[in-house]
Design a protein around this nucleic acid. Sequence first.
DNA 1: GGACCTATTTATAATTG
DNA 2: TCAATTATAAATAGGTC
Lengths: 185, 185
Amino acid sequence: MSTRLIKGRKSVCLAKIENQNNRQVTFSKRRNGVFKKANELAAMTGAEVGIIVSSPGSKPYSFGHPNINEIMNKYVGEERPLSPSSPDIDEKYVQTFRKANSRKLNAQLNTLQDQLDFELSLKNKLNQMNKNVESQQEWFRGPIEKMNYTKASILKEELEDLLLKVKKYGTERGYGYENGKWKVE
Amino acid sequence: MSTRLIKGRKSVCLAKIENQNNRQVTFSKRRNGVFKKANELAAMTGAEVGIIVSSPGSKPYSFGHPNINEIMNKYVGEERPLSPSSPDIDEKYVQTFRKANSRKLNAQLNTLQDQLDFELSLKNKLNQMNKNVESQQEWFRGPIEKMNYTKASILKEELEDLLLKVKKYGTERGYGYENGKWKVE
DNA sequence: GGACCTATTTATAATTG
DNA sequence: TCAATTATAAATAGGTC
């Protein structure tokens, strides 16, 4: 705890970070930051957001609300390749996007999410969450073609937030979270 | 000026903004915010970033570094091959993107499971949630391959809502976790 | 690599012009 | 509607363990 070094952030420099390690660290932090912001944008305004990020030497990451592949397909035109000679992609994008508003999946998802948002109380949700457990593994092992990674990342992040809250305020109530493991008595 | 009014921002609430006007304002501001963050990410780390955003009642917007179309073509490269006249594209990225978008479910599954390590360590929470997810499934009937996305969406929504509620009421004292069950008063 | 910490810079919600 | 203001919440650079 003999800390007396300078720690606060410096002003951001809009230039490529030279140091390889710092660059990687910044990439990870800021990639998550962008995804979090995108998630907030989608949640708060109902916007559709799709993001693809790739760093040299790193895996590609994607974010999509409601789903990266759906958004991508809208952008490039569903079920048909984008003509290599087609330069005016923005125009095409507008058209396909408007037409796609009536797509079945989106409508169903919107309905689902609206119901979840406005009809289920927290108490009901929590009670339902407390039902048994069996098929969880199957859920993770099933096809995930249409689910992008970032849904999971965001989910993870929010679980971590939740856990932080629990860790902070929950210990006095007889449970806690330490060293990556739950302690429930 | 004669009155000292409160202007500072409030804490962000991860829920859809009801007021139409505020929602549009927030959309514009935050869209720019996301693009700015994405631009910084690309500039500082050399990452490739592509973003598509669209809000109902608003035009679609895109951000791309170095180029949105190029990035998207890489991402969907499997279904929509790159134009043969793409000389400056690192083939390695293309391969990675193809892999990310691949229909080889096992590859994605492994990646997903790695990212979900944290959640898997919390089985006694997530497994309970799964039951709820299963029950909600009846609301939605569609292609099997999209079921998992639906489950993920539901789960994510529930977690978001749960987190919101916990943040809102948690510090006051209206929640707890005892004997493997959540309690909310 | 990851979690946590802190000083500071940024982003932005509410408000005014 | 759009730009500026300002108080605050959030993000994050650099550090430790």
